[in-house]
């Protein structure tokens, strides 16, 4: 930037002017309303008596005066001043936020619900997809839900996310259909600054809320665990046990090669530890098995975590020195 322009723009006096200009811009949003334009909730309910009992039983009907940001509370906080409508009884003379404001009146909701859960709303995936507050919440005739949800949480979410709903029917799934978890156990539907999920700086942290035993940080890591749990897990549901995207060993073999023992041809018949070995170390006594031609393949290529059980990380070195203790056997 040209230094003269910079000096002009940010000299002491002009900074004040910039500030005043900003205040002017911010203040232009407030519509000119006078207290005389408002009639009060009691007046509204004289005609809309079907709403009377119900509204007072909702969170909105219970708000203290200080919790309303404008001149009015009750019905007129959302529907605007009612005096003209009371006189004319014309629906055109009262604000219908759903029909008259963009995105089902979500901006109106955000006048009060500015921070906390909704701090990130404007930048959320739902907002970017034109999901409005009323897509999930029902404000009238809904006294039984303090969060004013339009149904159960699953009903609301699965209206759009039907493919996810079907995944919960797979043999391995998080217990959502059993009612022990809900979508919001992992997802922050109002937006999270990092991901579309709740309680986490990264997607991994969202999983760790319940699976702290895998948090570490460990001495011996399994790097995809540190990267993203979904590299191996399909968190909504899968055919393979433990929500694995594919069953072992194939999920593992995409990033690793098998042990060389898997090319060994197995012997046929029963076998047991040789007597000479047992004589030297009685701890080997009593071990026996049955072998077939493909036994070593069955050992090495059925389920890697039978031996690499600490697959999510460990602080204990595994036995082999040449493997540098990294085998996650302990």
């Amino acid at each position: 930037m040209d230094r003269r322009i910079f000096n002009w723009a940010f000299s002491d006096n002009r900074l004040l002017l910039w500030g005043l200009a900003l205040c002017l811009i911010l203040s232009t949003g407030a519509a000119a309303q006078s207290p005389a334009d408002f009639v009060g909730t009691e007046t509204c309910l004289d005609c809309h008596d079907d709403m009377a009992a119900d509204f007072s039983r909702t969170v909105h009907g219970q708000l203290g005066d200080y919790q309303y940001p404008g001149l009015a509370n009750g019905c007129e906080a959302c529907h605007g001043p009612g005096a003209k409508h009371v006189d004319s009884e014309d629906p055109e003379d009262i604000l219908n936020p759903t029909a008259e404001m963009g995105n089902d009146g979500t901006d109106l909701c955000l006048d009060c619900h500015r921070t906390g859960h909704t701090l990130n709303w404007e930048m959320s995936t739902h907002a970017e997809s034109d999901v409005s507050c009323l897509s999930c919440h029902k404000l009238h005739d809904n006294s039984s839900s303090r969060a004013l949800l339009a149904g159960t949480e699953e009903d609301v979410c699965f209206t759009c996310h039907m493919d996810t709903q079907s995944k919960f029917q797979l043999p391995s799934h998080h217990p959502v259909r059993e009612g022990f978890m809900t979508c919001s156990s992992c997802h922050d539907t109002h937006g999270n600054q990092f991901q579309e999920i709740a309680d986490g700086e990264t997607s991994r942290d969202a999983c760790l809320v319940c699976h702290q035993q895998h948090a570490g940080p460990f001495v011996f890591e399994h790097s995809p665990v540190m990267e993203d749990c979904t590299i191996c897990h399909d968190v909504h549901g899968s055919v393979a046990n433990n929500l694995l995207r594919q069953n072992e060993p194939f999920i593992c073999l995409q990033c690793h090669q098998p042990h060389f023992h898997s090319i060994l041809t197995g012997a046929e018949g029963d076998y047991s530890t040789p007597p000479g070995v047992v004589a030297q170390d009685p701890n080997y006594d009593g071990l026996s098995g049955t072998s077939h031609a493909d036994s070593m393949k069955r050992v090495m290529l059925t389920k890697c975590t039978q031996c690499h059980q600490s697959i999510h990380g460990s602080d204990l070195p595994s036995q082999s020195i040449s493997g540098q203790g990294r085998a996650l056997n302990r």
């Binding site: 023992h261 060994l264 041809t265 197995g266 012997a267 076998y271 530890t273 071990l287 026996s288 098995g289 049955t290 072998s291 077939h292 036994s295 070593m296 069955r298 050992v299 059925t302 389920k303 039978q306």
Partner: peptide, 18 residues
């Protein structure tokens, strides 16, 4: 996991499960 696949012998290499 019943570990029954964890058994086999190839030459002197032997695998056992308990």
């Amino acid at each position: 996991d019943n570990l029954t696949n964890m058994q086999g012998k190839a030459g002197g290499k032997q695998v056992y499960n308990t």
